[in-house]
Design a protein around this nucleic acid. Structure first.
Lengths: 341, 341
DNA sequence: CTGAAAGCGCTTACAG
DNA sequence: CTGAAAGCGCTTACAG
């Protein structure tokens, strides 16, 4: 079963290679009858064009590069799946790059540039310098940036509306009757954390409450350093009755700190997280949290990229699209025991 | 900054295209001085060969296909990372296929065959029919199969030693002093479950105990249907003092069932899982479990494939390699309250 | 609407 | 050890 080439199909269909190529590329300059016949032959013999040859000959690349962080986030699996669900039926191939070097995109960008193979690029950025990617973009490669932690860019960007997510979480606690609501924030340098803090404050203000700096504690996105600080906060006279944490990991540390203090979740302390990692539904009590729509993010990124690639050359107006996260209410948030002033 | 071609490098280095190509491919028929000079020029100008052209000209593909299940397993992220850590430095590219159709590899196999682009293939199989992949393999594509759930195959295969993992888990419980040890098994059709059951029984027998069928319960890999059955088992007079579950998900259901019965984990019931998904360390008590070495699995699969691809044509003797899982002892397993007969 | 020809950037025998 | 030439399988002007 030797590999079929366009020449074989041409012979079998009784036309020239050019015509087959035209059919393959959906040209309208082909007689419908001829086209259908050629298509038939192609299908019958299961012919698939050689991607390398197509690409070499300038027929637009069939490859989409995807750069994902090397971190083993749950994130990645769902995101990948979302991307694949759009890309695979489209006839493109996904070439996967893991930015093994967390701080430098230049080596992967060099490979991508050099191979001249990619019709477009999806970049899931964490904290890297986007310079090398922006250069590729300037030189004509369509790029869609999925900015989970990173700063905005001039490239088409997809972000989660972190402020809205945080606001929703805090409004949920307010609705339950909480008035002293603490916050476990992530590092200030991450834009997503600044946005979540802003959402927290804006929800409180909208309820006529003044954010109390004593009720905000800081730690790592993975919860590092959170536990002792929360213990301190929970040991004060005016301890909060609920805590909003910037990540689920941090929320787990809040739960641990509560246990350390002899407080029960949710009876004595409500806890809300952010991300909805798998563990959120497995811990006891199951964690109320703000779900990041990773699968949807992947789908949307793929759609945007495909549009840019197909529309070719048209690197058009800067896009910035916000995806709305969704509050998932579970068991870790309930009304406070005592009505509050 | 126009793209450099091999012709440019040849001109810059004062040699012919052929020589540059020979250098690129590490031929020993090039004068060392010439070689170093050409290499210098290549490095200085940051030249990267056009992958499509290389592939078309028959210079061995720079692409490795990777088919992963569409499931959003935590598995996938770690596995991918392992693969990438080996493949990226090697100069190959990973082309990602997600088997969106869980039951049929034929469409993805067709695309892979047709594109004629891949030097080799890593297949993470769950329950699909491997026929189309085996056909590719027969026709000369090096394949490494990572069989997490699936049956063995004549292709080079990497598996986790499920029997040993299960044995280790049960031996751990025996060492703690447990004598009545239950099992929550997965579906019989999965070879991995049969192996885990075998490991469970063999550990018991080695300790002079006879496996009691009344202490084995069956459910889905994701824990479906486990909870009521375990409740029943825990309500009998001769209930087990410990349970080994074939997956962490099932183990979580065991914990829930224990709670339903008013039993405390680990005081009244020890629980051990399998997989070590992220949640295992987040639940309370933290779950003792058998860790599947996903990252290592990815690394090893990539190494095997690279060897096969580089060694070319040499699809040699069938390989079947077992990776050893590792018991991670956490808080869900302790000695039984009362010494047992 | 269709075909013959040139060319994409490489590799690989084949001479020298 | 090195170079000139043919060819990989496509696409794309260019004629007709």
């Amino acid at each position: 079963m030797a590999k079929l080439t366009i020449r074989d199909i041409a012979r079998l269909a009784g036309v020239s290679k050019s015509t087959v190529s035209l059919v393959l590329n959906g040209s309208s300059r082909v007689d419908p009858t001829t086209r259908d016949h050629v298509l038939d032959v192609i299908k019958q013999h299961g012919y698939v064009p050689n991607a390398a040859a197509t690409s070499l000959a300038g027929g637009g690349s069939r490859f989409l590069g995807m750069i994902v962080p090397s971190l083993s986030w749950t994130f990645v699996a769902n995101f990948n799946h979302g991307v694949a669900s759009i890309v695979e039926p489209s006839g493109y191939e996904i070439v996967l790059y893991t930015s093994l070097d967390e701080h430098d995109y230049s080596s992967v960008a060099g490979r991508i540039r050099g191979s001249q193979l990619h019709g477009g690029l999806i970049v899931v950025s964490s904290a890297q310098d986007l310079g090398p990617i922006e250069e590729l973009h300037r030189d004509g490669t369509p790029v869609v940036l999925v900015a989970t932690l990173a700063n905005a860019s001039t490239m088409p960007t997809l972000v989660v509306d972190n402020a809205a997510g945080a606001r929703g979480a805090v409004e949920h606690l307010l609705d339950l009757g909480h008035r002293r609501i603490g916050q476990v924030a992530g590092p200030r340098q991450h834009p997503c954390c600044r946005d979540r803090s802003a959402g927290y404050r804006s929800a409180l203000r909208a309820a006529g409450l003044k954010p109390d700096p004593a009720l905000t504690v800081r730690g790592g996105l993975d919860g590092t350093g959170v536990r002792p600080k929360v213990k301190d906060m929970l040991s004060t006279a005016h301890r909060p009755t609920a805590v909003f944490a910037h990540t689920d990991y941090a929320a787990f540390e809040v739960m641990a700190a509560a246990e350390d203090c002899g407080l029960r979740v949710p009876e004595d302390l409500s806890v809300v997280g952010f991300d909805d990692i798998e563990s959120a539904s497995h811990v006891r009590p199951a964690l109320t949290t703000v779900r990041q729509p990773f699968h949807e993010l992947g789908e949307r990124a793929a759609q945007l990229l495909l549009t840019a690639v197909e529309g070719s050359a048209d690197v058009g107006e800067p896009i910035r699209e916000e995806i709305q996260p969704e509050l998932v209410v579970r068991d870790s948030s309930v009304p406070p025991k005592h009505r509050q002033p």
